[in-house]
Design a protein around this nucleic acid. Structure first.
Length: 126
RNA sequence: GGAGCAGGCCAUACGAUCGUCGGGUCAUUUAAGUGAUCCGGAGGAAAGUCCGAACACCAUAGAGCAGGGUGCUCCAUAACGUGGAGUCGCGGCAACGCGAAGGAAAGUGCAACAGAAAGUAUACCGCCGGCAGGAUUGGGCAGGCUUGAUGCCUGUCUGUUUUGCCGGUAAGGGUGAAACGGUGCGGUAAGAGCGCACCAGUUUUUCGGGUGACCGGAAAAGCUUUGUAAACCCCACCUGGUGCAAGACCAAAUAGGGAAAUGUUUGAGGGCUGCUCGUCCGAGUUUCCGGGUAGGUCGCAAGAGGUAACGGGCAACUGUUACCCAGAGAUGAAUGAUCGUAGUCCGGUUCAGAGUAAUCCGGACCGGAAACAGAAUUCGGCUUACGGACUGCUCCGGCC
RNA sequence: GUCCCCAUCGUCUAGCCCGGUCCAGGACACCGGCCUUUCACGCCGGCAACAGGGGUUCGAAUCCCCUUGGGGACG
């Protein structure tokens, strides 16, 4: 039985951590999103979402955040190990629908899963 | 059927699964936390931050000036720049809508270009009079010359015309957004509210209605006054400042540093408002160099609430009684996703009906979707964005 | 969140307070011509803007209101 819980402890909260990820994390791009990934500081994989004001009004930004959070909640188990992931929305995601968002995030998570598994292997190896 | 006006109303509903934030209870745990369960979890605009208040701090929130705001009247309200009812003006055929709507007869400023002249008088053209000069193949008179006569010359009077000067006028004048009441008659040298009649307006007095803005009427004064105050300003009224990042408490960390200037009752400096006064605190304060922390708790969710009846009021609103609710409280920031059913809207296809037709209405099927938009101390408004259905009303067209 | 400020040619700006002289001036850039063997410099000419809407006024870049966009301060 997989767990689909997602509460506050699985989120990136502090500003330092966001800055660290945007400076030093590895970045994966997509049409709608950017994922900045770095090794996790806590013992679980955590998610942070960045949606700037340029993307739209408050309702639009909240919608994007909810889509992203929902997808992460349901697909977290695909990523091995402890990582900090920051999903940054790009400007094309402003008028996105839920289905397109989910398919777009799926592609991104496919890449993420490959990368994470590979890195996990290397870390184990050493 | 079309076009339009006004008003309040709704903001998909229900079920299942997986989640999320707050609170209560239980379990576990030293505690933080974790898990289970129950309850609650966005809007009409939550938005813009344009007003008003509550609340907190600044002295208890002080005085004067400055500054800012409002601006027809009465009422409502905790308050308002808001609302209601009216007045006046403007727009619309109408339903109805809009109006920063006090004062230009307190003062100052401005009115480009054009035009004679732009606000108080002036006089460029024009019209008229007087004086002086010129012209005159208009007319009269006198004198002279000459002749047969007509005639010619000079002077003078009058007329016409013209030039200059002085004066009178404001009827008329390419302009301009705007030109000093309008029309007619009289009057005059020419003209003019110069006089008169009617009309329009203003001021003063007065009568009636209205709480009032104002409305209706009468009389008098020839009084005719340009526009602009969303230009300065005057008048009336309101207004202390800062905003929950207000503010209160707890904890952590480093340092109780160095240099310069100034000051200690003859008072530095600071707070209260921009200035002055007044008042309070008062032994440190300011600048530079160097270093450190930026976490948590409270504020923070229970009434200027809603509905109904009765009473007051045209209404906004308000008094009493009864009932209904206890109704979000996050802080990298919760209220979501998927599926199903029903319903609404939009688009397409098809069938039937009305009609010459455009088109309209109804049924079925398929596809799509909800428009604007997300609490951040809390309320009352305003403004802006936007989907839908309903009710009432107005105008136009057609048929009976 | 609370409170402020700004918007003018492609870019940087003047004009705004106190309305008309402004179909908005200047510099750089761009285009064309002259000069030069050619390029540059220089000279001449041209193109090009008042964020959007409404109001006040005879008249608005300027005054007032609303909206849009951008920027800043505050623990």
């Amino acid at each position: 039985m997989k767990s689909f819980h997602f509460n506050r402890s699985a989120r990136i909260i502090k500003r330092n951590e966001f800055v660290y990820l945007s400076n030093k994390g590895q970045k994966l791009k997509n049409e709608h999103f950017i994922a900045a990934v770095g090794p996790g500081r806590s013992n679980i994989t955590r998610l942070g979402i960045t949606v700037t004001k340029k993307i739209g009004c408050a309702a639009t930004r909240n919608r994007i955040k909810r889509f992203t959070r929902e997808y992460f909640r349901l697909n977290r188990h695909r990523i091995q190990g402890n990582w900090d992931i920051n999903i940054i929305a790009r400007q094309k995601a402003s008028a996105i629908s839920s289905k397109i968002a989910f398919s777009s995030l799926e592609k991104l998570f496919d890449d993420l899963a490959k990368e994470s598994n590979y890195k996990e292997y290397i870390i184990d190896f050493y």
